[in-house]
């Protein structure tokens, strides 16, 4: 594991506890278009690769995230190298899980679709959910729609339940 220079005396474990969550979040986002590459594996590889390195605590954040960025690029390149050069179509590999990516994309599209259906079935519920998802608070929603906070809360609660049902189960909102 990496460690910091003797002047700061921070153990590898402390370094891991301090940075591992943010590194994992960083790697997960960097690798999001490649769900077949596991971010936990990448974090493990990163820590093993940094095993012999020693650096000052002040620069640990910069060094670790630079290494994480390079590792993510390497992993993506390795995947890209497996594409057919002429067509750009990816070779079929049983280890990859492109269907997972498709399912996720479909569900996100379905969320928008279900919200449209909610617009038609329960416009007030749809309006309040759209308002919250674009960052408006209850006070703005209540003011604009001239409704009480209790009513707004109930509409949001019912609207979310309908949307979840529609996205997960395929039912009408």
């Amino acid at each position: 594991m990496p460690s910091t220079g003797s002047s700061t005396n921070v153990s590898a474990r402390e370094l891991f506890d301090q940075w591992a969550p943010r590194l994992l979040a960083f790697l997960k986002t960097k690798l999001r278009t490649r769900p077949e590459i596991d971010a936990e594996d990448a974090l493990y590889d990163l820590w093993v690769k940094c095993a012999e390195k020693t650096f000052e605590q002040e620069e640990s954040q910069r060094m670790l995230f630079a290494a994480a960025r390079n590792l993510a690029i390497d992993l993506m390149r390795k995947k890209a190298a497996r594409q057919w050069p002429e067509t750009g179509v990816e070779k079929i590999d049983p280890a990859d899980q492109p269907h997972e990516k498709l399912i996720t994309r479909e569900k996100h599209a379905k969320l928008a679709d279900c919200l449209k259906k909610l617009d038609a079935a329960h416009p007030e519920q749809a309006r309040i959910i759209r308002a919250i998802l674009r960052g408006d608070g209850y006070e703005v929603v209540c003011q604009e729609s001239n409704m009480t906070p209790a009513k707004a809360y109930k509409l949001k609660f019912n609207g979310i339940a309908s949307l979840r049902k529609c996205v997960e189960g395929g039912g009408e909102p």
Binding site: A109, A112, R130
Partner: peptide, 18 residues
């Protein structure tokens, strides 16, 4: 969420709606 594991999902869901 910003330092969590589901930011990619959250952003694409927000993009789908907003």
């Amino acid at each position: 969420q910003l330092i969590g594991l589901e930011l990619g999902g959250l952003t694409s869901q927000l993009e789908a709606v907003n």
